[in-house]
């Protein structure tokens, strides 16, 4: 296991009476993709921006590259790349001018064309920022976050508002960064995104981290049930009834029942055979991160919205 590049201890941020970040501690290891997963108002942006040195914590200790964020802003900023939430840039600069502008701010002689191609903006390099669609603007933001060849890349909701195709493009870029050995700190509302990309996921709600681990660890740890979806003829639900399992009829004539363990799955199969109940398909699936998340936070994806 590699060493930690970010370490946060007992971080607290108050806005008046509101505990936007409420005693959070975690570590991010070098080279991993770390995802902050949480609903609106959970405190993701606040935490990330404290680590990026652009907000001040109320209390707690934050080290990045072993340096205190309160004291080493100049040094830290040179080594990180940031895509702020809802990134926006100068309306009347072209894509290429925008990337060059930020490269100049870092006194960096990076390969601007390479960065533009990396985020698939080659065709749009001479288009004014203001005329780009939302998804393309977001990609400009990612290119800009890479001008200084950062060791850690912070991406605050990089795919919010993107269509599925554009989202997958961004995922490719993130995977590419990981291959280059960069550490990626991601915040997202999308379970799928965390599940696909992240080595470590921290679920955050109401300013607190409620669980941390790899996606599969989280699922193992928190899922109490296995979903068995059977599509087919009559009488399937009677099996669930007989076994006292929770079940639900779904559209298209399928029944979803919740099994506790493999024993119960076997029992379901046995009973289907005994009663000669026919079926078209059987799908056995552990709970996904979304269900874990909903269970842990008691909130929907877009629900919550603060305190």
């Amino acid at each position: 296991m590699s060493e930690s590049v970010i370490s946060v201890e007992n971080l607290v941020k108050l806005y008046g009476d509101l505990r936007a970040v409420d005693d959070i501690s975690f570590e991010v290891r070098t080279g991993e993709v770390f995802a902050f997963l949480g609903p609106n108002g959970a405190g993701k942006t606040t935490t990330v921006e404290i680590i990026e040195t652009i907000r001040n914590a109320t209390s707690g200790k934050v080290l990045i590259f072993g340096m205190d964020v309160r004291k080493n802003r100049t040094e830290i900023i040179k080594r990180i790349g940031v895509l702020p939430q809802e990134f926006s840039s100068f309306d009347r600069l072209t894509v290429e001018e925008t990337v060059r502008y930020f490269a100049a701010l870092f006194e960096s002689d990076c390969d601007v064309q390479h960065l533009i191609n990396l985020v698939n903006l080659g065709k749009h390099r001479n288009q004014l920022y203001t005329n780009l669609s939302g998804g393309l603007k977001q990609r400009v933001g990612i290119a800009v976050a890479l001008v200084n060849d950062p060791e850690i890349v912070f991406l605050d909701e990089p795919t919010t508002g993107l269509d599925p195709r554009a989202r997958h493009d961004v995922w490719d870029v993130i995977n590419g960064l990981k291959k280059e050995g960069k550490t990626v700190f991601l915040t997202t509302h999308y379970m799928e995104e965390a599940e696909v990309l992240a080595d470590t996921v921290a679920i955050i709600s109401r300013g607190r981290i409620i669980s941390t681990g790899s996606p599969s660890e989280l699922i193992d740890k928190h899922s109490t049930s296995i979903h068995v979806t059977i599509k087919g003829g009559m009488g399937i639900s009677s099996v669930a009834e007989a076994m006292g399992l929770q079940w639900e009829a779904k559209n298209g004539g399928s029944v979803v029942m919740e099994a506790r363990d493999n024993e119960q799955i076997l029992e379901i199969m046995m009973r289907l055979k005994e009663k000669n109940i026919g079926y078209d398909s059987i799908d056995i699936r552990k709970a996904n991160l979304e269900e874990v998340f909903l269970k842990l936070t008691g909130e929907g994806l877009s629900g919550g919205g603060g305190h």
Binding site: E49, S88, S89, F90, L105, V144
Partner: peptide, 13 residues
């Protein structure tokens, strides 16, 4: 308003 200030804050300018 556009959040460009926040982005500039993460650069050395």
């Amino acid at each position: 308003q556009k959040g460009i200030l926040r982005k500039l804050a993460t650069t050395p300018i």
